[in-house]
Amino acid sequence: MFGRDMADKAPQNPTAVDAPPTVSGGGGGAAYVYEAPVRLWHWVNAAAILVLGVTGYLIGTGTPATPGEASGNFLFGYIRFAHFSAGYVLGVGFLLRIYWALMGNPHAMQIFRVPLWRSCIWREVYDEMRWYAFLAVEPDRRVGHNRLAQLAMFFMFTQTITFMIVTGFALYGQGAGRDSWQYKLFGWVFAIWPNSQDVHTWHHLGLWIVVTFALVHIYAVIREDIMSGRSISSMISGQRQFRD
């Protein structure tokens, strides 16, 4: 430990961060992993994404015609309004989550930073793949995210959500107009795709990446809850419990 350089100090060390909860001793160890802001963010974020996914899909497909005068209806307007409001919640939440990654405990950084350059990471990913391929009988006992989950979160969640926020606000800027801050801040997206039809297409494809992530994620947390006793309640209480 003492011989290491500063950058390698315990909080950044991927193995030390997630060491099994030896401190608490006993069989069913508990460790405080997900701090309150992370938990709160997780559920707000999940709710926002649910709203964004449903309303986004409806925006993409259009709704069946409502009868009556146009002045008496605002269905599509409300759907879009819900999408944009949830978009703001997601965006602001994501910024706060980044802030907490810097201020919070080392686990808070996990979804933003995967030290891919360390060989131990790949060993752990390999072990985790063996676990999910039914080859290992012994589940991983780390307290934070397992390495595979961390990879999925980094590549499928963090990256995709960043992309969705950037393209989402760029599209929003089109409606808000050339003088809006959204256009000033995110208008560069249209330097990459001059035809905003492409931005719509990629933004739409992002929906399916998020859906796929959510599918695997929810399955994995339920399965882990049953199979290795890594309880779902970690995202509620913050305590990582190993129930055996």
Binding site: T201, L207, W208, V211, T212, L215, V216
Partner: peptide, 23 residues
């Protein structure tokens, strides 16, 4: 985008279901 996305999500969904069954 919907055709590609639904195919991908569907494939992953089936994999998840199969994985759950094996588990």
């Amino acid at each position: 985008a919907d055709q590609i996305g639904m195919a991908a999500a569907g494939a992953v969904g089936l994999t998840v279901a199969a994985h759950a069954a094996i588990t």
